[in-house]
Computed example of a mutant assay.
Amino acid sequence: MSNPYINAPIRASMYTTTLHKVTWVVVVVVSAGLLAPPLFLIAAKKRVVTMAVPAVYAAVIYGSAVPGSVLGNPKNWVGGVLAITMIIAAVHAAILDTDWKPGR
């Protein structure tokens, strides 16, 4: 019988200090979500999240911002998509390194 805690791979911590965490969340918000994919790419390299997470963020953020600026934005949909994605990315960045415990 093997213990999952003994045989588990070592997972690196995403943030070293609280200031580091606050800096990344502020960077995601100030850049309007455009720097969320690099943050989650770093998290994927540290094996905090899967590689699908930065790919999805990049597809949503760059997939809406670039065509919206090239083709035009007649109904103003790009701002809404970026605002919603920025909020989701900021919350996701803030909870990346928390250890969820049952009963909380």
Rank of each mutant, 00 (worst) to 15 (best):
F40S: 10
S31M: 03
P37T: 06
V22I: 15
T23E: 09
S13W: 02
K46E: 06
V78S: 07
R104P: 00
G72K: 05
K75H: 15
S13L: 14
A32G: 05
I6W: 03
V49D: 03
I6Q: 14
V70M: 14
V49T: 07
I61Q: 11
P37F: 04
R104C: 07
A58V: 05
V27N: 10
V66F: 15
D99G: 05
D99M: 04
L34T: 13
G63H: 12
I42Q: 12
Y62H: 03
K101M: 11
I6S: 09
K75W: 15
L35D: 06
A65M: 09
M51G: 09
Y5I: 00
V66E: 09
V70Q: 11
V49W: 02
T85Y: 09
A93K: 08
K46M: 12
S69A: 12
A43W: 09
Y5W: 10
S2Y: 06
R47C: 03
P9W: 00
R11F: 05
I6P: 03
V66D: 13
I10T: 10
T16G: 11
V53R: 08
S31G: 05
A89L: 04
G80M: 12
N76P: 00
T50A: 08
W100M: 05
H20K: 13
V81Y: 10
A83C: 07
P102C: 00
P4N: 02
V27M: 13
N73H: 12
A90G: 09
N73C: 09
Y5R: 00
V29T: 15
V27A: 14
K45T: 00
Y57P: 02
V53E: 04
A55E: 01
K21T: 02
V78K: 10
P37V: 07
T50C: 01
A59V: 07
W24G: 01
V81F: 12
